[in-house]
């Protein structure tokens, strides 16, 4: 019994890393910083520079968490979120909106679309990491 719990704990502990995280933003510098942060935690990072790229990556890799910018050309963040939440295959993914648009209406819209979190830019990296870890715990908890 103790052995099974221990391996379970190890399994769980291991689950704090190794998430599949998709970062979508049209600003390369932001991508760069976010990529660094996630990679440091040991997650698998995918990046997309616009919504269209994002669709492909989501389909191919089914991420666990998606960090989503809103203001992007051609396809914006809302549309990506809708896309995710529509499909059974990926709707489990946790969406985190990150945007300079910080009006209440914008935030409400994001959450309504099914996002788990809305983080205004500029953000604090520490704050962001804490929030992402929280999401991971939810995922792990759910999985277990």
């Amino acid at each position: 019994m103790y052995l099974r719990a221990k391996s379970h704990w190890i399994k769980t502990k291991n689950k704090m890393t190794g998430m599949k995280i998709l970062i979508v933003d049209d600003e390369p510098n932001i991508l760069m910083s976010l990529e660094f942060l996630m990679k440091k935690e040991g997650h698998k990072v995918f990046i997309a520079r616009d919504g269209a790229e994002a669709f492909d990556i989501i389909e191919a890799n089914i991420p666990d968490i998606v960090l989503l910018d809103i203001m992007m050309p051609k396809v914006d963040g809302y549309q990506v979120c809708e896309f995710i939440k529509k499909h059974d295959s990926y709707k489990h993914a946790k969406v985190v909106f990150m945007s300079a648009k910080s009006k209440e209406a914008d935030m409400a819209k994001g959450l309504e679309l099914g996002a788990s979190l809305y983080v205004p830019k500029p953000f604090s990296t520490r704050d962001l990491m804490a929030k992402v870890n929280g999401l991971i715990r939810d995922i792990s908890g759910a999985a277990a």
């Binding site: 600003e27 510098n29 932001i30 760069m32 910083s33 976010l34 660094f36 942060l37 203001m71 300079a100 648009k101 830019k121 500029p122 953000f123 604090s124 990296t125 520490r126």
Partner: peptide, 17 residues
């Protein structure tokens, strides 16, 4: 606002990192 916040985001994030 957006245009200002965007570089600021990079600056802050990178500085913190």
């Amino acid at each position: 606002t957006h245009e200002i916040r965007t570089p600021l985001t990079s600056i802050r994030a990178l500085s913190e990192i």
